[in-house]
């Protein structure tokens, strides 16, 4: 069980349990879900907590627990695909910019500046506005909006590593740029990107819920927390649980991802500097949240 001890020591039981249980629900959602999340039963509408429906039913008689589980699936698949897309494209652009420098660096970084000057959510809004609201378009839009973050992160790490004597000595030995990039620079950048991504996942989960809340992301009848929130709005007086439950699920997931990211960042860099960086990142996070 040695392979299992290291992550526990780094991340701690509670955080790991939190994130893993969400992942479990997302992966085995269709198995553990008691009802079809889209099945309507108007005879059973607006039921409170009961043995048949543990978390009650909504205005169309759909089982809330099943819909929360399906929502977890939607959110986590969305977050994962966005991170994969944005991370891959961002790392490719950032590595090229950081290693080759010059005009390529200028172009990529000015595009990033453009991306940063507009809040990510607005960029996503614009893209969804052009291509029309759907789950796939939302993922594409958020991925594009998130690329600059990863491009700049990678560019910084790669540019710093590329001027190290060990990269220079590889150049003197005659190593091709491809060898230097793929065998030496990408692994360094990947570590940093993964640390950042683990904390960024929470922000993305929020962004997905935001877009769906605005009706620009996940479309009914597919279940998604943000979309559940908005469809429960008219009933906030008579059945507050319909609003509270998806909000709570989202909050717990975001907190879980943030704890995960923080713990990994701290474990990688136990020096005081890391703590200062961390508080800086928290401040940026708060700023993004309020934007």
């Amino acid at each position: 069980m040695k392979w299992f001890n290291a992550p526990i020591r780094i991340v701690g039981w509670p955080t790991l349990l939190l994130v893993l249980s969400f992942a479990f629900v997302a992966i085995f959602g269709s198995v553990v879900s008691p009802y079809d999340p889209a099945a309507q039963n108007l005879m059973q509408a607006m039921q409170p907590f009961s043995p048949e429906h543990w978390l009650g039913t909504d205005n169309l008689g759909r089982d809330t627990l099943s819909r929360l589980i399906a929502g977890a699936q939607t959110t986590l698949i969305g977050v994962t695909s966005i991170l994969l897309l944005a991370g891959t494209v961002g790392m490719i652009l950032g590595t090229l910019a950081g290693y080759f420098g010059g005009w390529l660096d200028e172009i990529v970084m000015r595009l990033c500046d453009f991306g940063f000057s507009v809040p990510s959510l607005f960029v996503a809004l614009a893209i969804v506005g052009v291509f029309g609201p759907s789950y796939g378009n939302m993922i594409l839009a958020l991925a594009i909006a998130w690329v600059p973050i990863y491009a700049r992160l990678t560019r910084g790490v790669v540019a710093a590593a590329a001027s190290q004597p060990y990269i220079e000595s590889l150049r003197v030995l005659g190593a091709s740029p491809a060898r230097i990039i793929f065998r030496h620079l990408i692994p360094v950048a990947l570590g940093q990107v993964l640390v950042y991504a683990s904390a960024d996942a929470g922000l993305l989960a929020l962004a997905i819920a935001n877009l769906s809340f605005l009706g620009l992301g996940v479309q009914p009848p597919q279940a998604e927390w943000g979309q559940m929130l908005v469809s429960a709005m008219p009933y906030i007086q008579e059945a507050p649980r319909l609003v509270i439950l998806p909000g709570l699920a989202l909050t717990i997931l975001v907190v879980g991802f943030n704890l995960l990211g923080e713990r990994i960042a701290l474990a990688k860099n136990p020096r005081p500097m890391a703590r200062r960086k961390l508080s800086l990142r928290r401040a940026i996070f708060k700023q993004e949240m309020s934007a």
Partner: peptide, 22 residues
Amino acid sequence: GAATRRKIQYIFQDPLSSLSPR
């Protein structure tokens, strides 16, 4: 050019940073 250049090698001042830590 690469084959010829390779015949001239370079030794850096700081051996620790001129070897990959990985």
